[in-house]
Amino acid sequence: MENSEKSLVARMHQVQLAVNLIELGARLQVLETETDLSRGRLLRLYKEVRGISPPKGMLPFSTDWFLTWGPNIHSSLFYGIYQTLTQEQGCKRIDAFVKAYRLYLEQVMLDDSEPVLGLNRAWTLLRFFESGLLELAECTSCHGRFVMHAHTPCKDYVCGICRPPSRAGKTSKARSKLHETSGQDNVVVDMQHAQPVTDVDAPAAEPVELARKRVAGGRH
């Protein structure tokens, strides 16, 4: 009784947060952890926002993915933004997460590349940092900060942009396809080819259209 009274505004915020997260591609696990809405409500919200049932299956759980070349650069960009928002500007954790993810998407869209880091991956990344499994290491060449396994000696660390592995970015068909067809409106093509990159994070490839709109349109 008391609960439902006091929480009308709070509940609204929770719903808004859930909607924002769903629009950006969040899975049910993320929503259940980050909001206090019931599973039933979240399911209904999800269907209303996306028009389909949420995908089933586990969230990615390996830290290694974040250390591979492309994902590492994207993860580092995202986490750098998140850290500035929380540490320098005092944004609250989950608000900062959503904002940082939007700012990350914005940049990726500007670069005409794929959002390699899906929202669920970004959230997993955040949790890995919070549990101390990952840390940032400073590149001795460009002084950017990059995602690393915790407790890795990083005195002479050089990042994947300053010293890319020889085959970096060349293996993926998505890339060559992207260059062949580089035009204004090949979003659909890109998205299809983005699928293998984001396999475990399947919804990430999908909500890009939505994300584009969100990035371009209103945000709160």
């Binding site: 650069i73 994207h74 960009l77 750098g80 500035t84 460009c142 002084h143 950017g144 942009i161």
Partner: peptide
């Protein structure tokens, strides 16, 4: 992307 990453710092 690199520029953006360094600027966020």
């Amino acid at each position: 992307t690199h520029a953006s990453l360094l600027m966020s710092r």
